[in-house]
Amino acid sequence: MPAVVLSVNAGGLEQVPGLRRPSGIRKRPVERIEVRDPGPKRGGLGSGVVGDEIGSRKHHGGETQAVYAFAREELDLWAGRIGRELGDGMFGENLTTRGLDVDAAEVGEQWRVGETLLEVCGPRVPCATFAKHMGEPRWVRRFTEHGRTGAYLAVREPGVIEPGDPIEVVHRPGHGLTVPLFFRACMGDRELAEVFLRAEVLPRVEHEWLASLR
């Protein structure tokens, strides 16, 4: 099956039960999205998707978290596990994909999507906002143990993305350091963290953040 964009999703700030501040985690399918480099996490534009909102810019958004991609196949897996329908955008993703193993992507891998060029930067780390939004028991732990988080992407060439656009992997570094491995390093695997730091494959901001955990 060819890899395609199944849905493009965006959202405004909304109140999530159990949270004090509004969040932009509730994404809904839209006809098209325009993506661009939002600049740094602090002081930048927030989301890489024009019109998409982020509640906490301290922890989310910025160049290396400009666009979030998640596979429809993984949503279907979780729907079966928790016994409820999960619509496109339910995990807060901007791109719901089909036919692409998002979690097999290597850090630094580049995708041609519609008019755009996107680069894989790292995993989504589950947080309290995600847990409250899902409303499932022990959600952060369950999501973490599964270890397939989808991928945050940087925008290297801006443009428009629409449902049905093909996704072509145009560059794969070949170092074998995938998004799930980076997630394990983020979650405390010190040996893996050192592997990533020695390999110097991470974007600068992610490299510095991982080094700060030593």
Rank of each mutant, 00 (worst) to 15 (best):
141 R>C: 02
175 H>G: 04
133 H>L: 08
156 R>T: 11
132 K>I: 12
182 F>R: 07
161 I>P: 01
160 V>C: 08
178 T>H: 01
143 F>R: 08
171 H>W: 08
158 P>S: 02
155 V>R: 05
159 G>Y: 08
149 T>Q: 14
157 E>M: 10
134 M>N: 01
166 P>H: 03
169 V>H: 04
148 R>A: 08
175 H>F: 02
133 H>F: 05
160 V>Y: 04
179 V>Y: 02
154 A>I: 00
162 E>C: 14
138 R>L: 14
139 W>D: 13
168 E>Q: 14
145 E>W: 12
165 D>F: 05
135 G>L: 13
171 H>R: 12
160 V>S: 08
182 F>Q: 06
158 P>I: 01
137 P>E: 14
183 F>C: 01
178 T>V: 05
145 E>G: 04
165 D>V: 10
169 V>Q: 12
167 I>V: 15
145 E>S: 13
155 V>E: 07
135 G>M: 13
170 V>C: 06
179 V>N: 04
164 G>S: 11
173 P>T: 09
132 K>G: 01
164 G>I: 14
149 T>E: 14
155 V>G: 05
159 G>A: 11
176 G>A: 00
172 R>P: 03
144 T>Q: 10
162 E>N: 13
173 P>R: 06
146 H>Q: 14
173 P>N: 10
162 E>D: 11
150 G>R: 02
166 P>A: 05
160 V>W: 07
140 V>S: 11
168 E>T: 15
141 R>T: 14
177 L>D: 05
156 R>I: 11
136 E>G: 00
171 H>A: 10
138 R>E: 15
152 Y>D: 12
172 R>I: 11
177 L>C: 08
174 G>S: 08
134 M>A: 10
138 R>I: 04
150 G>T: 08
164 G>R: 11
166 P>L: 02
156 R>P: 01
175 H>T: 04
157 E>R: 15
144 T>R: 13
141 R>Q: 15
143 F>L: 14
152 Y>T: 11
151 A>R: 00
132 K>E: 15
138 R>Q: 14
181 L>S: 09
146 H>A: 10
164 G>L: 13
170 V>R: 09
159 G>F: 06
150 G>C: 08
141 R>V: 13
181 L>E: 15
136 E>P: 00
156 R>H: 05
178 T>N: 03
137 P>D: 13
146 H>S: 02
159 G>N: 09
172 R>G: 07
150 G>Y: 03
172 R>S: 15
155 V>Y: 03
133 H>I: 10
163 P>A: 02
173 P>S: 08
140 V>M: 15
163 P>C: 04
183 F>W: 02
162 E>G: 05
163 P>W: 01
181 L>I: 14
145 E>N: 13
177 L>F: 06
146 H>C: 02
